[in-house]
Each structure stands twice: as C-alpha cells, then as structure tokens.
C-alpha cells in the first residue's frame, strides 16, 4: 500500500509539473554535464520562455541519431542538438526532422543555408601536442617523422571519422598512400576521443587527434599553456555541429524558439567555454582570451554533407586496408 501511495504521489507530481510546457532536447552526454554548456543554457532559456527545458543526454552524436531512429514517431524529443556535418546526410534521409527556417549571420567557414539544420558551433580537427615539440606541418611530414600519434577509430568515433574525411578531402586518390605512410606513426587507435586524449596525457603518444580549440581548454580552465595544435598546410577538416526540430514534436513553436535562441550571446558564450568549440554566431564580446583565432576559410576543408556518406564507405575501406597490413 505504501508503495502505491508513493507511486500515486509521484504521478501527481509529474502531472502537476506538466502544466508549464516542456521542451525535450536530446543531446550528447558531455553537453549536459556540469562542465558542459547545458546547465547555463537551460537557465538562460527558461528565463525567457516560460517553459521547462529538459536536456536528455544520449551517448554521443552518432548514438543520438541511432536513438532517434529507434524511437521513431514515438520519440519524446522536440529538438535534437549534437548532430554534425558527417551525419546530416543520413539524418536528412531519415525524414525525422522538420524545417524551422531559422537563420542568422553565421561566423562559419562555409556558407550555410539550410532550412532544417541549425548550426550552433564548429571546430577544426587537429593534432594536439606539447609546446616545444618539433611539430610537422603536413600529413606527409608527419608520415616521414618518428612522431607517435594516437587516433580514434572512424567506425566508432566522430573525430575518427573526421580524420578519415580530412585525409580524403585533402588528398583524394592519394589518401591510401598517406595512410600507409602514417601506419608506423600510429601507436594505437581507440574507441573514442576520451581514451585517446587520456593516452596522450599519460604520455603514450606525441600527438593526439583532437581539435584546434583543445589547447584553449587547458589555457583557460587549467591555466596550462603547455598544449598547442599543429597547423597543417593542406588545411583542416571542419566539424559543424547542428540542431534540428523533430517532425513529430508536440511543441513545434517552442522548438523553433529554442533554435532561434541558439543565435543568442548567452547560448554562444556558454558553448565556447563549455564545449570548447568556435561559436556559430560570433557573440558581442568576440572570442574569449586564450582561444586561437580560427583559420581562414581557405584553410578549411569540408565535404558537402550529401557526399560525406558516400566518401565515407570508400575511405573506410582504404583506411582498413592500409592499416591492417
């Protein structure tokens, strides 16, 4: 009986809470952690929307999309936040997302005009190393050096996939040759970014595949100037992270309002020092001290999202062949 009473109380409590509209946003785990931008954004948005913003962390970007596909029309999500450019093609084909026509004056390295997917931040893949290392200036130099790197598996990790597309975008048909050259530099390949970064900090490798913005974290959050990113002359592959409204949302207007809120200074500032990425829309104060200025657009590589999926399968085969030898 006590359990019943307890359960009834719980149900009442939930239904009472449901009187203010609730906006459910699926995102990746690190976005909602206390170190991520989630808590600040929640506070700022709730202050203006008279609603309850609920972030739900569901693994990482790729897991998010798989989760939404599994849930199909029954999903509780109104908005998904955390897909990236390599997933947009598949996401569009799924038919799960609806246009919101939100647009802004983007500070992105590429022109952006997409009625469905709203960019909220972006970054450039890069190899991070200790200051003082005689860092290579290209993949070819890296391949010729004795430097040890640790990377992520493109089959299980978004940055891993980014590296695959980076080499492909920069070298095209010569990509297999680059990978063969890199084979002896690769200490190991890990499941995700966390493992790689942990190995790098443990001293297992000279460089780690991460982002140009990673050193900013160490500078700003830890006051540690010892990390920097190697700039490659063939350019750096970009990752643009996007949000979108679910076609089946029962709060479509609130969802659009949230997507518009992405352009606000509050959101963009939270993302910069919470996600450690560049803002999609430059906030009034500009980049915080400690951030390197992003590379010029001509140094940025990005395959169109509708090609990324096709290129991926061929590039993956090349990668497997080159590294399995």
């Amino acid at each position: 009986m006590r359990h019943l009473a307890f359960a009834a109380g719980f149900l009442l409590a939930t239904s009472a809470g449901a009187q203010t509209p609730e906006l459910t946003v699926y995102t990746y785990d690190s976005f909602v952690s206390e170190f991520g931008p989630g808590p600040k954004i929640e506070q700022a948005f709730e202050a203006q929307c008279d609603c309850d913003l609920k972030f739900v962390g569901a693994g990482d970007g790729a897991a998010l999309l798989a989760r939404l596909k599994l849930e199909g029309a029954r999903t509780k999500a109104d908005v998904v936040l955390g897909l990236d450019t390599s997933l947009i093609g598949t996401a569009r084909d799924s038919g799960l997302f609806a246009p919101s026509n939100v647009s802004a004056d983007y500070a992105l390295p590429v022109a952006w005009d997409d009625p469905v997917f709203v960019p909220y931040d972006w970054g450039l893949f890069a190899f991070v190393h200790e200051v003082g290392l005689d860092a290579p200036a290209s993949f070819r130099e890296l391949a010729e050096s004795d430097l040890k790197i640790v990377i992520q598996d493109p089959r299980s990790s978004t940055p891993g996939l980014g590296l695959l597309l980076w080499v492909k975008a920069a070298y095209g048909d010569e990509a297999p040759e680059i990978w063969s050259g890199l084979a002896d530099n690769i200490v190991t390949v890990t499941k995700g970014w966390s493992e790689s970064y942990g190995l790098f900090l443990n001293g297992e490798a000279d460089m780690v595949l991460s982002y140009t913005t990673s050193p900013a974290y160490h500078r700003i959050a830890e006051g540690d100037d010892s990390k920097t990113a190697a700039i490659f002359e063939e350019g750096h592959y970009a990752q643009i992270e996007v949000a979108a409204k679910l076609a089946g949302s029962d709060q479509p207007e609130l969802a659009t309002q949230f997507l518009e809120f992405i352009g606000s200074d509050a959101f963009q500032s939270a993302v910069m020092t919470g996600n450690w990425m560049y803002p999609a829309i430059m906030p009034e104060g500009g980049l915080p001290d400690g951030f390197d200025t992003p590379l010029a657009a001509e140094q940025v590589l990005l395959l169109p999202s509708d090609q990324a999926a096709e290129v991926r399968d061929a590039a993956l085969d090349e990668w497997l062949t080159a590294l399995s030898r």
Binding site: D153, S156, A183, I186, V187, T188, V189, T190, K191, E195, L199, W319, L320, L323, S324
Partner: peptide, 13 residues
C-alpha cells in the same frame, strides 16, 4: 571485448 582489443591491439587489425 571491444575497447580493450582495439586500444591495445594497436589498430584496425
């Protein structure tokens, strides 16, 4: 096994 095999296996082999 997955993460152990991959990380210590040293690559897609």
């Amino acid at each position: 096994s997955f993460a152990v095999a991959l990380t210590l296996g040293g690559g897609p082999r």
